[in-house]
Amino acid sequence: MQVGDVITVARQTIWVIVKTSVPLLLVSMIVGLVISLFQTLTSIQEQTLTFVPKLLAIMLALMILGNWILSTIVEFMNNLWGNFATYIR
């Protein structure tokens, strides 16, 4: 296995990680921003107020996007395992 192959596999792995995690991170960030604005406008300074809405939003996003996330990871792993013979040379 050449150094270029290792770099290519590492680059593809990082891209799959970023591509599958960004939607959930964006949902968490948007919900946190909305709750922070709500806390600022109402002067409620409860630290634990953001936990439950973020958890529910991430669970909802996982229900909606879970199939796409899983199929992206499975496709990447099938591609990686399909080319395994070229990697061990």
Score class of each variant (00 low, 15 high):
Val16Trp: 02
Val34Thr: 03
Ala10Trp: 01
Thr8Met: 04
Leu33Asp: 15
Phe38His: 08
Gln39Thr: 03
Gly66Gln: 10
Val9Pro: 09
Ser21Trp: 06
Val31Gly: 14
Pro23Gln: 11
Leu37Thr: 04
Val18Met: 02
Phe51Thr: 14
Met29Ile: 12
Leu41Gln: 02
Ala61His: 05
Met59Pro: 00
Thr8Lys: 05
Ile88Arg: 11
Asn67Val: 05
Glu75Ala: 12
Asn78Trp: 00
Tyr87Phe: 14
Leu41Val: 13
Pro23Asn: 09
Thr20Phe: 01
Ile44Gln: 10
Val16Lys: 05
Val27Tyr: 01
Leu70Phe: 05
Gln47Gly: 06
Thr86Leu: 14
Gly4Glu: 12
Val3Lys: 03
Met1Trp: 14
Val74Glu: 07
Thr13Pro: 01
Ser71Val: 06
Val9Ser: 10
Trp81Cys: 11
Lys19Tyr: 03
Ala57Thr: 01
Ile30Thr: 10
Ser21Gln: 10
Ala85Pro: 00
Ile73Val: 13
Leu33Ser: 15
Val6Lys: 15
Met63Asp: 09
Val6Phe: 14
Ile73Glu: 11
Ala57Met: 10
Gly32Ala: 08
Gly32Arg: 07
Ala85Leu: 05
Pro53Met: 08
Ala10Leu: 13
Thr42Asn: 13
Met77Lys: 02
Val74Met: 11
Gln45Cys: 04
Ile58Cys: 09
Val31Glu: 15
Met29Gly: 03
Leu55Ile: 08
Asn67Tyr: 07
Lys19Trp: 02
Ser43Leu: 12
Gln47Cys: 05
Val16Ile: 15
Leu56Pro: 06
Leu26Arg: 02
Thr42Trp: 13
Thr20Pro: 01
Gln2Glu: 14
Phe38Thr: 15
Leu49Lys: 05
Val6Pro: 05
Arg89Ala: 15
Ile17Glu: 02
Ile7Trp: 01
Lys54Phe: 06
Gly82Phe: 08
Ile44Met: 13
Ile35Leu: 10
Ser71Ile: 06
Ala85Lys: 05
Ala85Cys: 04
Thr72Val: 04
Val6Arg: 15
Ala85His: 04
Ala57His: 02
Val22Asn: 00
Gln2Phe: 06
Ile69Gln: 00
Leu37Cys: 08
Val52Tyr: 12
Leu65Arg: 09
Ile14Cys: 01
Asp5Leu: 07
Phe38Gly: 14
Phe76Glu: 07
Ile17Arg: 03
Ile17Tyr: 02
Met63Gly: 13
Leu60Cys: 14
Pro23Tyr: 03
Asn78Asp: 12
Val31Leu: 14
Ile30Ser: 06
Thr50Pro: 00
Ala85Thr: 04
Ser71His: 12
Ile58Lys: 06
Ile73Gly: 07
Ile14Tyr: 00
Leu65Phe: 14
